[in-house]
Amino acid sequence: MNVANPMPSATPAASLVRTLGLVSALCGVIIVGAYQGTYEAAAANRRIALERTVFKIIPAAKSMTEWQATARGIRPAGGEAAEGAIKFYAAYAEDGSLAGIAVEGAAKGYADVVRILYGYSPDCQCINGIGVVATKETPGIGDKIITDKAFLANFKALDVKLDQALAKLANEVKVVKHGSKTDAWQIDAISGATVTSRAVGKAINDSAQALLPILLPEIEKLRKKES
């Protein structure tokens, strides 16, 4: 508005740049310091959280290693993750023998993607135990998949045998209506939380269909813990 005095007190551009540079440098130092200071603890936390879930599913486990499976076979994880690789964790008992394999699966539930971790036992070719990694299902209904004892009982020796050619599951893992489970490869849904139950079943089925045909032929690689 005031034509006579358009900029009451203009600061030279160099000064502005200098100030911003100074502030940014100072802030950069603070951030780097915080990152360095907390990196170890944060990484340890993440590992502990994952181990806790894996050990809960496979109670005999005392240690674990991370692996990945591609179309060409399985190898220990590390370095660059290959395109489309499926991650899984081999868990070992105290004496170094294979206690079980924990595999991640995910499927769309009622609210958002339900991510689970399930324990695969190569000896019986079955699933023993699941754990939920992330869920946003309705509290009190959908999150029964963590607490409902009858539902969790489904995951004691859930059959995921491969067919003769070792190309796919002999029987698809199926979620059936509450109270109508007849076969070992069926999951009895939670009454009132059918959508979430189905998501768990689909997550297991999809992930098992993709991983097991690659994993099973090479299972011997996992038998002994590599030191």
Binding site: C27, I30, I31, A34, T38, Y39, A41, A42
Partner: peptide
């Protein structure tokens, strides 16, 4: 933003949950 980043790192280190 700097201090928010610091807090972000610290909470990760204290409790992932």
């Amino acid at each position: 933003a700097t201090f928010v980043t610091v807090v972000d790192y610290v909470i990760q280190a204290v409790s992932l949950e």
